[in-house]
């Protein structure tokens, strides 16, 4: 990629979790929440990150923002490695890197007014701003996300989920960040509200030229917002490709399984689908399978898959896949070719 704003190189985050407890000491087990993840992100680009719960996508987001400490790897933001910065320097960087949360209400302090919530980043990053200036900026921001500025003295519980998410977006954008990481920003919202928020995010991204990392488990939403998509499973990247490549011809068996699992709101097509549900369950992250982590659920797995960890190979311009069974994985769309728009009836 030419001039990426963000380069993540071989990033790993390991957690120790409690195992057996004996007297004062606890046995510790290691969870490799993020394991050697690399990708690049361009200016004003949207990267979708998909995966099921426990795949490490949220941890990855927090590691990029320095909210959890990675164990290895580099996060290069505009040429500077963020890993190893001290607390103070990292805090300054956070003005450029903001986060939008999954839980709209839970991410707002219940004892603060909307004005205080959206104004907090300003007070932190620009302590010299006067009260009036802060209020002015906050009101402008609220208006931009579709909240009437006269509601500035209201408290979070007086708003609906969708409105709370708008407030969360205003808080993230109020300091003019360049990268916004959205961690499941719509999964807690009702469908009709989801669309409002997705549209709002897309629009603001275009207007403010933001780079966006959009984390979700919903493949249809990711398809709708992303330029490129990264698929994670058990802390590792399975596939990364441009949106069109990925949905037109998913090359990793896991990506195919994910798309296959999505029910489509069309009774005729949905019932005609010959669907094979992916068997099994997510293996324990403290004890992942050897070799390819997906092999225990993969219909194409062989003994080789247990022996070698598949490299994330570039198989096409801009697309990488971590699978050694490329010769047998089916090609082409998982879902039938979409009808042209207009053919709705």
């Amino acid at each position: 990629m030419r001039n990426p704003v963000l380069k993540v190189e071989d990033l790993s985050v390991h957690f120790e979790v409690d195992g057996e407890s004996r007297w004062f000491r606890r046995e510790r087990e290691v969870v490799r929440a993020v394991d050697g993840v690399s990708f690049e992100l361009g200016a004003a680009e949207t990267l979708g990150i998909v995966g099921e719960s426990g795949c490490g996508k949220s941890t990855l987001a927090r590691a990029i923002l320095g909210l959890v400490k990675p164990d290895a790897g580099r996060v290069v933001w505009l040429g500077d490695n963020l890993i190893g910065l001290d607390e103070d320097a990292m805090r300054k960087k956070r003005r450029e890197l903001q986060l939008i949360f999954q839980d709209p209400l839970g991410s707002l302090d219940p004892r603060m007014t909307v004005g205080q919530i959206v104004g907090e980043p300003l007070r932190n990053f620009f302590p010299s701003m006067s009260g009036i200036q802060v209020r002015e900026r906050v009101a402008g921001m609220l208006k931009m996300v579709g909240i009437a500025p006269e509601l500035i003295n209201r408290y979070p519980h007086e708003f609906s989920g969708g409105q709370c998410q708008r407030i969360g977006i205003a808080r993230a954008l109020v300091v003019n960040p360049r990268l916004v990481v959205c961690d499941e920003p719509v999964s807690a919202l009702d469908v009709s509200i989801q669309a409002q928020i997705v549209n709002l995010l897309k629009e603001l991204q275009k207007k403010l030229q933001l780079s966006l990392i959009f984390i979700a488990h919903d493949l249809s939403v990711v398809q709708h917002v992303s330029d490129r998509v990264l698929v994670m499973y058990l802390g590792k990247v399975m596939e990364i490709a441009s949106r069109d490549q990925l949905y037109a011809d998913p090359r990793h068996p896991y990506t195919r399984a994910l798309i296959e699992a999505v029910p489509i709101p069309d009774p005729v097509a949905e019932r005609a689908r010959q669907r094979r549900a992916l068997g099994g369950e997510l293996p324990s992250p403290t004890n992942p399978p050897s070799g390819c982590v997906f092999r225990t659920r993969c219909p194409y797995a062989t003994d080789d898959c247990a022996r070698t960890t598949p490299p994330l190979d570039e198989i096409d311009e801009g697309r990488r896949v971590a699978c050694i069974r490329q010769d047998v994985v089916p090609t082409g769309r998982v879902l039938p070719k979409p009808p042209r728009s207009g053919a709705v009836e």
């Binding site: 909210l67 805090r91 986060l99 839980d103 707002l108 302090d109 907090e120």
Partner: peptide, 11 residues
């Protein structure tokens, strides 16, 4: 989440 949000916004 709001504590993490505060940290993310530079507190």
């Amino acid at each position: 989440a709001f504590i993490e949000a505060a940290r993310a916004s530079g507190a």
